[in-house]
Design a binder for these strands. Structure first.
Lengths: 172, 172
DNA sequence: TATTGTTATACTCTATAACTATA
DNA sequence: TATAGTTATAGAGTATAACAATA
């Protein structure tokens, strides 16, 4: 059956570890790599996640949505919590600190006085950019550099696709 | 500067999210996907990790090691804990249960009566294979299937390389 | 009645420290 | 003294439930 008896079996599936067994430890290492940068900028991991979520505010095509349907904007705390996969009660301390440092604004919504509208301040946007730049430079130099040149683009492409998949598509 | 004003900037670096921001949620989803399989086989996540570590026991080239130097074999509990990135105190309950179910053996080392030598039983090996097969089938069908055919091999190749990198290479 | 932000509480992991038996 | 395994304790992180204000 096997064409070449040389090194590397041809028709036997090369055994690989489970994706989770590779992805999870890698994630831990990547988080550890971010920590010094975050400390240097005095932001917590969750703080940085929040800054990113507010900055990345996806431009959803408004054409699809009827005006009567309330857009689930990320600008409310509940929507933010949902977007970053955290409980709404868990981000409050984070928001408190970001606000205290002038990195975000929390303004009452005149239309619905229960909600707080969130927005990045200019300082918040700048800080997020600095952190992001430092982190991604490190990633290029220390992580992606370890990959064969030819695989880098495909890796990032695949990662983007999989990370944008609805979690329930993956969990089954 | 930009050659084509069409869709997709040519010389502006396509902004990507931080690797950690993509990898960590993906890891969470992959773990969630494993859970039903693990439950069906009545193993905990850590139990499965242990079974894998014992089964994957890397065949280290013995030629390099002088006989006088004690090989840090994975068969002791301490070595196992190190290998899977857990504290030695944390795996004890896991080992207890695996042993009780006849999936592993814990035998005193005659040469050093402090240590317990760990080994998979035949039942343990079989169970691990079943779980692994189910998990990887699911991964192929639900996860990797979402990737462009041409990127799959590169993705797995890259993942293997990065996950085998010493964590301190990544953290800096 | 349902929802937003908030606070308080409980629970799950995980890390640390102590203990024993060997070396 | 140091180490392997074990146990007990404490801490961090997270989830759940209750609350006031508003819809």
């Amino acid at each position: 059956m096997s064409g070449t008896p040389g090194p590397g079996p041809a028709d036997e599936a090369a055994p690989r570890r489970d994706l989770a067994a590779m992805v999870v430890p890698l994630g831990r290492a990547l988080v550890a790599a971010e920590e010094p940068v975050l400390r240097a900028h005095q932001v917590s991991m969750w703080g940085y996640v929040v800054l990113n979520a507010l900055a990345e505010q996806p431009v959803r095509t408004p054409s699809i949505r009827a005006p009567s349907i309330r857009a689930p904007s990320i600008r409310t705390q509940a929507a933010l919590a949902l977007a970053i996969g955290a409980d709404k009660s868990r981000i409050i301390g984070v928001l408190d600190e970001l606000q205290q440092r002038g990195l975000i604004e929390r303004r009452p919504d005149p239309a619905d006085r229960r909600v707080h509208l969130l927005a990045l301040t200019e300082a918040g946007r700048r800080l997020r950019e600095s952190v992001r730049e430092a982190i991604q430079r490190h990633e290029e130099e220390r992580v992606l550099a370890a990959l064969p040149e030819a695989d880098r683009a495909a890796f990032i492409r695949a990662l983007r696709i999989l990370s944008e998949l609805p979690p329930e598509d993956i969990s089954g």
